[in-house]
Design a binder for these strands. Structure first.
Lengths: 196, 196
DNA sequence: GTCTATATCTCGATAGAC
DNA sequence: GTCTATCGAGATATAGAC
């Protein structure tokens, strides 16, 4: 309506387009033109909202982080932490086609940003992954399991591993197979008398 | 000594430098100049040995594939397939500092190449990963275990997952923690009466 | 606030001397 | 076979009109 709303709408469109396109094409292969076109904003105008390309990458990362928060907030409404973790695995399996085509948004972004020698954004994606790690650890802790941090690491590592494999081999079925195995592993933790 | 040896020496230097630099910096951020400098070859001269940058990327992938073959050949000299798999995990843990800094060479390359829309190299890294997958499946099959392909997938996924996490969080200790867990998992497979 | 035009820079690739 | 010089494409970023 007024000018400020119009402005933030465009900023939001750019952020959202950046999150999508950067996930699909990667940071280095994506031009500002690609993002501007997807957001329906003239290229030169991008610089009114973001001073550099890196700021757009940062905004895209925040967008992914917000998506993750939405998801975990929804899961937190489930009473049993065990159900929350199982529901998350279910969500991962549901996203198998996207994972096979483009990988995990945060994971692939982390791989790419970690290659950068300039210490500007190269640890930024790690922050988002750590949020997921912390959330998972909280669930395992609530379940009264020993070494919740180790369990969370195994849990998130498994997700990143199956996403990368599904992506590298272009096979969504890998998400289903490994997701199912992860569900069985989660189930096996219910018996607290097992050593491993 | 003679001209042909000199020529292939330079080609080999370029291939080796490409494998190293592309792993460290990624494909898109690495210029031909970077590789040429590392190989101590003038930039323009690169084109005598490789028609395009993509051919250098391909050569680097072949180099990584050859390294993998060397490793599995050495492991194959061990009598027990179980020992071979355990030794491979040990090798992964030994490489923890490189994994934390740059990730798995093939895995990170696969992530980057999969983002490309041109269908030129985007499945090439998957081939190398599949070689490892096949080798692992062979070991599990020799051990007489059920579903050797599924076990191999879990095994290699775990490696890719822990490499990515170690890289994203810049923490070599993750390779040790998850590697140790993977060794325990491998050990648990020895009892053939377990259901999962 | 918005958009066009363009400066500037870097890189992949080529032409051609030696 | 080797190397230098340079072209041309395409990208980020800026200047300035509206």
């Amino acid at each position: 309506m007024n000018r400020r709303v119009g402005a933030s709408q465009k900023r939001q469109r750019l952020t959202s387009a950046a999150a999508r396109v950067l996930h699909e094409q990667g940071v280095e292969r994506t031009t500002l033109g690609d993002i501007a076109r997807e957001a329906d904003v003239p290229v030169g105008n991008v610089y009114y909202y973001f001073k550099t390309k890196d700021e757009l990458v940062k905004a895209a990362l925040s967008e992914h982080s917000a998506h993750l928060d939405e998801l975990t907030d929804r899961l937190d409404q489930l009473a049993d932490p065990h159900d929350r973790l199982a529901a998350l695995i279910g969500a991962w399996i549901d996203q198998r086609d996207i994972a096979a085509r483009f990988g995990c948004p945060t994971g692939t972004l982390a791989v790419e940003l970690d290659k950068r020698a300039d210490g500007i954004l190269d640890a930024e994606a790690g922050v988002v992954i750590r949020r997921l790690l912390d959330w998972a650890a909280r669930q395992f802790r609530e379940l009264g399991l020993r070494d919740p941090d180790d369990l969370a690491l195994t849990f998130v590592s498994a997700y990143q591993g199956m996403s990368l494999m599904a992506n590298a081999l272009r096979d969504p079925d890998i998400m289903t197979r490994e997701g199912t195995r992860l569900l069985r592993w989660l189930e096996s933790l219910r018996a607290p008398d097992r050593p491993s």
